[in-house]
Simulated assay, not measured.
Amino acid sequence: MKKILVVCTSGLGTSLAMRLYVEKFIKENNLNVKVEHTDIGSASFIEADLILGAKQVIECLAEQDHIEVIPLEDIVNRQYIRQQLFSSATVQSWLVEKEGIR
């Protein structure tokens, strides 16, 4: 299953709030994607297709081969997060794939 991983320093408040924004985006676009949130230390051990989080947190992640990473400048602006998701090559491929299935 496709997965988006939302990362913050402790894996509690910030990543949970962002996860809710991302889940709303996934539901609105009728995508079959699982969304999880975690702390920065655990992120390297969780398989995902897309990782997003605050820019300063993402910069601390170990390099992820073949995984798109979105460093967010503004983690509370829902419209900005939505825009970043729509700009994602990974999300775009999911949207195209979904349209091709219909």
Rank of each mutant, 00 (worst) to 15 (best):
V69G: 08
L52P: 03
E99G: 06
V57Q: 03
K55D: 15
F25T: 12
L20C: 10
Q64G: 05
L5F: 02
I46G: 10
L5Q: 11
I101M: 13
S87Y: 06
H37V: 00
V22D: 01
L85H: 00
G41S: 12
V35P: 15
C60G: 08
K3S: 13
I40V: 11
N29P: 07
L31V: 07
R78C: 02
F25L: 07
K98W: 08
D65E: 14
F25Q: 09
P71F: 01
N29H: 04
V6M: 09
S44Y: 09
I58R: 14
V7C: 10
L20S: 15
N77I: 02
T9Y: 12
Q84Y: 00
S93V: 03
G11F: 04
V69A: 09
T38Y: 04
I26R: 09
C60T: 12
N30G: 11
I101H: 15
G41T: 05
Y21S: 11
Q83N: 11
L85S: 00
K2S: 08
E63P: 14
E99M: 06
I4G: 07
S44M: 01
V7N: 15
T9M: 03
E36G: 04
H37L: 00
E99Y: 10
Q56E: 08
Y80G: 13
Y21R: 14
E73Q: 08
Q64S: 08
N32I: 01
R78W: 02
L95R: 13
I67E: 08
S87T: 05
D39W: 02
E63T: 05
Q83M: 07
N29E: 00
K2A: 02
N30I: 01
A89F: 05
R78P: 01
G11L: 00
K34D: 08
F45D: 07
S10M: 07
I58L: 01
G53I: 01
N32R: 09
S93W: 04
I101G: 09
D49V: 02
E63R: 11
S42Q: 11
K34L: 04
F45M: 11
R82T: 07
V91E: 05
A62W: 01
G11I: 01
P71G: 13
R102W: 03
L31A: 10
F25M: 08
Q84C: 04
V96H: 15
I70E: 12
I67Y: 03
V33R: 13
E47Y: 06
S10D: 08
R102Q: 13
A43D: 02
I46W: 13
I81Y: 02
N30R: 11
F86L: 11
D74Y: 04
I101A: 14
K3P: 02
H66N: 14
L52K: 01
F45N: 15
E47I: 00
T38E: 11
K27G: 00
V7A: 07
L16Q: 12
Y21P: 05
K34C: 03
R102F: 06
T38Q: 09
L95W: 10
E97T: 04
I4C: 07
S44W: 02
A62P: 06
Y80R: 13
G41N: 15
D39C: 10
L5E: 04
E23N: 15
L31K: 10
E23L: 03
R78S: 05
A43T: 03
V22T: 14
E68G: 15
V6K: 14
L20Y: 12
G100F: 06
G11Q: 08
K27R: 13
M1F: 09
Y21C: 09
F45V: 01
S44G: 05
D49T: 03
K98R: 15
Y80K: 15
I51G: 00
V33M: 07
